[in-house]
Design a protein around this nucleic acid. Structure first.
Lengths: 222, 222
DNA sequence: AAATTTTACTAGTGATCGATAGATAATTAT
DNA sequence: ATAATTATCTATCGATCACTAGTAAAATTT
């Protein structure tokens, strides 16, 4: 399926590769800690090209966040939601986070869980955008926990919001510790303790029927 | 005890009040999100006065961090360590954090738990300084947990480092959520779930003798 | 009163910030 | 070939960055 080439001078750079380079910088140094000069040096072209292709620094950051979500976070969450129980979902997600946050091929921590927490007043739109994405991740947990209550994996008395806040806090804390140099083993130990607070069945709910999953078989290790 | 006035023109500002004003800005907007112009406007004098009194922006930030520690964190940790059991210490600390992180008279979150996570390369000394202080907080937990193991509040098989990492992660996650707008009730619910993962006695250890503390009596509420 | 010491201000410094005007290059359409 | 379109560059914009030289002001010491 060869697409006809558009009019005008063709791009000399690969857009995805340029977004990867920008992501690496924003991830490691934050929005305010990354300058246009840093970005153009890493992306391999000059400021006018950046502005023609991406609009502004803020537009580029937003696009980099979406690039990150498609590349990492969305896959992690979707794979976790495919697990057969809410407990297994959380275990999968936390273990995947422990590995991802310490992956040496990317900067430490999560690009959204602990990003843009404090910015100058003129950059508050960025702060709110990243907070909105954190909230979506939280909502993903809440909805899965509500399903778990209907499946009787969780007692009906459980507060889904509180439990989702708890596991969201764990992910955010793991991101801070990864940035501070924690190993994946350190983070998995944190995840295991967080999973020990699970207030319901540690297998799938009574309305499901498949095999029982145990603590030992992780979704991503082995 | 009247101290004799020093030579030279006297200060026209109160140093502690100036540090309070600088703390509010660094706390809310971070190191890179706060400019010298912001600081001098809030502190009530001009740049040369700031530099004569505090050295540099980086020196001022370090002094503000110490000001914060003396004012908030050290008191919280010392009060927590005065509790009669490790479990009570953690409960006190987490509850105090939940209140403090959402105190409307200060910016949301903790000034060190989630500060300076991402900075430009030229500001890495700041990143490392704040990370060092986070590590000290972690060490405080570890040492108290080691005492708890000797007191048989905790089984000897417990990994103090992992457990301290877990509760440190909770504090850091609570700080992120406070910044994102969580209420003190939200954070106390997170703290309660974290406390439910405590792997030992929920009263003081067998080598102690005083009264048993229960979940219901918090160190700071009522 | 004069000298000394410390503080504070006005008015800038050079460097870097995010962003752009204008020219040129590289392609397709006519 | 010429026009139209798109991309890229050199050079630079005004604003802001952290910071300071030089001077005046306010106190103590002599």
């Amino acid at each position: 399926m060869q697409t006809t080439r558009p009019r005008g001078r063709p791009r000399t750079f690969d857009r995805q590769a340029a977004l990867d380079a920008a992501m690496e910088l924003f991830w490691r140094h934050g929005y305010e800690g990354t300058s246009i000069a840093d970005l153009t040096a890493a992306m391999g072209f000059t400021p006018p090209t950046l502005y023609a292709a991406f609009g502004s620094k803020e537009d580029l950051y937003r696009e980099v966040i979406q690039h990150f979500l498609l590349r990492s976070e969305r896959q992690r969450m979707e794979a976790a939601l495919n697990q057969t129980s809410a407990y297994a979902m959380l275990r999968y997600y936390l273990y995947a986070a422990a590995e991802s946050f310490t992956d040496p091929s990317t900067p430490a921590g999560c690009m959204v869980a602990t990003a843009a927490l404090q910015c100058a007043v003129e950059n508050q739109p960025i702060v709110q955008e990243v907070a909105r994405i954190r909230h979506q991740m939280f909502i993903g947990f809440v909805e899965r926990l509500d399903v778990a209550k209907r499946n009787q994996e969780l007692p009906e008395t459980i507060d889904s919001l509180a439990l989702a806040n708890f596991y969201t806090a764990i992910v955010q804390g793991m991101s801070v510790q990864a940035i501070d140099g924690a190993s994946s083993a350190d983070l998995i130990a944190v995840a295991d303790l967080a999973l020990s607070a699970w207030p319901g069945e540690k297998s799938e709910g009574k309305s499901q029927k498949a095999k029982v999953q145990r603590d030992q078989d992780s979704g991503i290790r082995g």
